[in-house]
Write a protein that binds this DNA or RNA. Structure first.
Lengths: 124, 124
DNA sequence: CGTCGGATTTGACGTTTGTCGAAACCGAGG
DNA sequence: CCTCGGTTTCGACAAACGTCAAATCCGACG
């Protein structure tokens, strides 16, 4: 409509952006912490962190589970479980095509996390 | 043990590491994941995320535990435990002065995390 | 159809985590 | 020296987590 405030435009359903100034510049409020902490937690496992990076850096923006699994020592079901965790956190998206499942990154949330971690703008 | 390892152990392992291009630009290697995942995990709790932000945004760069505790519903010992987690992760530093303990942020690691989450520069 | 292969779900397991209360620690003042 | 207030550590316990093997689901292809 007429409000030029680009911050809190739409707050429809689940994964909305109560977006976040850098935490070094302003205290994170409880509601934001409740929403963003699970995303950090999802990245707080070495396997998931690698999975996330493989998905985010995949050429073409997507990668097949069959290309993810052989890079790890853990079983396929464990990989699947970790992928579900990333999915539930809103960090990735999955699409089934034929017999294979492809994952792609959801840049929105990751951008929020990056902004939150960004150094305070008054830094020297 | 040939190392006088006491001081080296106290130093966060990632203060001046050269690593971490954005994970959207390049896959993060296992060793890096092993090193940085604990930091994400440490931020993966709502209380700790708020604690971290209160410390990082504290005027003067530091804040007393006595100013942190009353902002939460949980007990003082729980706050202390969370602060230890942040300390162990290398995200904050503590200094005792008189009867009070002051915490301050360690920007190094947080900057690495931010870089890792930064959007890939070759994205379209 | 029936079967095969990739992926997810289920059930079970040991481990880790978040929380509390109680106890211990540590400076400061009486 | 003894006490007091702020902080951390110690046990304890339920909940959540990471992992695996087995079962299940879901397209594809004989």
């Amino acid at each position: 409509m007429s409000k030029p405030a680009a911050t809190a435009d739409l707050l429809p359903p689940a994964t909305q952006t109560p977006c976040c100034p850098p935490m070094a510049a302003q205290r994170v409020e409880p509601a934001t912490a409740l929403q963003l902490a699970p995303a950090f937690k999802a990245l707080g496992d070495p396997v998931r962190l690698q999975l996330m990076s493989m998905i985010a850096s995949a050429p073409g923006g997507e990668i097949c589970v069959c290309d993810l699994t052989p890079s790890f020592e853990v079983s396929g079901s464990t990989i699947s479980h970790h992928l579900k965790t990333l999915r539930d956190a809103g960090l990735v998206d999955a699409e089934r095509r034929a017999s294979w499942v492809y994952y792609r990154a959801r840049p929105g949330l990751m951008r929020q996390l990056a902004t939150l971690l960004a150094p305070g703008d008054d830094e020297s």
